[in-house]
Write a protein that binds this DNA or RNA. Structure first.
Lengths: 179, 179
DNA sequence: TCGAGTATCTTGATGGACGAGATTATCGAG
DNA sequence: CTCGATAATCTCGTCCATCAAGATACTCGA
């Protein structure tokens, strides 16, 4: 689209760029549509997924860390958690050691919702991937992993250019990040 | 994450799924951060890109079609265009044939902004892709193209489940769609 | 053990974006 | 030249994010 070259490889680069853009636009639309279908908004859905992820890893998330992941102010996070708790999706639990902290745990309705979001997507993933060999998938993985790294750097650069000092999220550390 | 298998291929599938999820999350963050940096919001940025895309294809977009692409109500679209026009990013032009219609054209500040969004991303893309052979990129392209198709189907399914009757956007037609 | 400093979450006020529905302008068919 | 359909706009209410301040709990040095 922007910068079009004539050689075959240049065309390929452009195609992939366009693929990626389309993919993320679709992903956003899907999240938005699914959320709306269940009376949530896009942020709520992201939060629900983050809470579930953390819980499945045995490392419950706190409002503070949730705010970092979603890039939300602390006040917004409280309101967000209020909404989700009111909807019965998650619940708050005070830490016994440090009573300032609140741990977020998902309640069953929330978990079911998250599963119903991912299950069909997973099926579709499987369908597509079935058409590729192990070696091909390996290439795809290598490519996507590198793209994600590059995107994260870019994200941090933009955030740094703003006022937020890059706001070291879990993304700064190499790869143990939940997502 | 969800459904983890032990064999190598299963692991690969899970990894790629995770890659894709991370990618779209990052893409969203980048859009949000960039928009905020320039006094816009995420919707405004998407709209600006859509307007530019259409214009570059020589087929200026109308508010109605823009609303379809962004999945916005007509009222929101009007407000959105007001904002962008006020900011000097785009301008409205009445169609001479059908005076109900309004064509959206980007003004220079808007174009510059869109370019300053894509240019660094393009550079990063190039860097990553330089590390892959033609054949490998071919595989990536094939994979992503299929994923996009699958995602679109899913999106339409969800929207159909809602109230909107799949709202035939440009996505229904095979591939000449801008995005 | 007291107190200043810090961390974590919450509250309240404000502004802005979005959606729903009514309204205005225009077009095409009979 | 009406009537219905279509495109955009306007109005209003709701909801969400941000900001600034506040409440509570921990930490550590004197």
């Amino acid at each position: 689209m922007y910068r079009r070259r004539d050689d075959r490889r240049g065309q390929m680069v452009a195609d992939i760029t366009r693929d990626l853009r389309r993919y993320s636009v679709e992903a956003q639309h899907i999240g938005h549509a699914f959320a709306g279908l269940h009376g949530l908004n896009a942020t709520d859905l992201h939060a629900l997924i983050a809470v579930m992820d953390a819980e499945l890893l045995g490392d419950p998330i706190t409002p503070g860390r949730l705010g970092e992941q979603l890039n939300l102010s602390s006040g917004s996070v409280t309101a967000l958690i209020d909404r989700l708790e009111r909807g019965g999706h998650i619940r708050r639990d005070r830490d016994t050691a440090d009573r300032r902290k609140v741990f977020l745990h998902y309640a069953d309705p929330g978990a079911a919702l998250a599963r119903s979001f991912f299950a069909p997507l997973g099926r579709r993933n499987d369908e597509v991937m079935a058409r590729f060999s192990d070696e091909e998938l390996e290439v795809v993985h290598r490519f996507m992993a590198e793209m994600v790294i590059s995107m994260r750097e870019h994200r941090d650069a933009i955030r740094a250019a703003r006022g937020e000092p890059a706001r070291r999220t879990a993304g700064t550390d190499p790869d143990n990040a939940t997502r």
